[in-house]
Simulated scan of single mutants.
Amino acid sequence: MTSLSPDLISVIVAVFNGIDTLQQCIDSIAQQTYANKELIIIDGGSKDGTVDVLESNRDKLGYWVSEPDSGIYNAWNKGLSQAKGEWICFLGADDFFWDAQVLERMASQLMTVPPDIRVAYGQIMLLNNNGENLYPIGEPWQGVKERFKQVMSIPHPGLMHRRSLFEQHGNFDESFRIGGDYELLLRELKEADAVFVPGLIMIGMRQGGLSSSPANSVESMWDVRRAQKMHGLRLPGFFWVMAMIRVYIRLILWNLIGERMTRKFIDFGRRVKGLPPYWTKT
Rank of each mutant, 00 (worst) to 15 (best):
V51G: 08
I72C: 06
M202Q: 02
G158L: 12
G269N: 11
D48A: 07
G232S: 11
F238G: 06
E191D: 09
D173H: 09
K149H: 11
N57T: 13
T262A: 14
K47E: 09
P114W: 00
V113A: 07
R250D: 05
K273D: 11
I88A: 04
L186W: 02
P276K: 11
S70H: 01
I124G: 04
K145W: 14
G62R: 14
T21I: 12
Q24W: 03
G71K: 08
E188V: 04
D95N: 07
L233N: 10
P68T: 09
H169A: 13
I252W: 00
D43A: 04
G18A: 00
I203Q: 12
I19R: 01
F265S: 10
R271L: 14
W279G: 06
S5K: 11
S5H: 14
Q150F: 06
Y63F: 15
A227D: 01
I40Q: 02
E259R: 00
D94C: 14
L185G: 04
V218K: 13
T112K: 15
Q142L: 05
Q23F: 10
I249D: 11
H156S: 02
K149N: 05
A107W: 15
L210I: 09
G269Y: 09
N57S: 04
S3N: 14
E132I: 07
Q24C: 02
V13H: 04
L189G: 07
P140N: 10
G180P: 09
A83S: 10
L91S: 04
Q82Y: 03
L126M: 04
D7E: 13
Q101P: 08
Q23Y: 00
N57A: 10
G237L: 00
V13S: 02
A14C: 13
D59H: 05
E219L: 12
P140K: 05
D95F: 07
K264E: 09
E188G: 00
S46W: 01
S212E: 13
G44K: 04
Q142G: 01
I124T: 03
D69R: 06
W222S: 05
S175A: 08
R163H: 12
V272I: 15
A215C: 02
A215I: 10
M230S: 14
S46H: 00
G138Y: 02
L8F: 03
W76E: 02
E183Q: 13
F148T: 09
R225Y: 06
V151K: 03
F238T: 12
V195L: 09
R234N: 12
P140Y: 01
Y121F: 14
I252M: 10
K37E: 01
Q168S: 15
N36R: 12
E167V: 01
A215H: 12
A30T: 00
V102E: 05
F265M: 14
N57V: 10
L233V: 06
K145C: 15
I257H: 10
Q168Y: 14
V195D: 11
F90V: 13
F166T: 03
V102A: 12
H156A: 12
K60H: 03
E259Q: 04
G44L: 02
V65A: 08
W64C: 04
F238S: 07
Q150K: 06
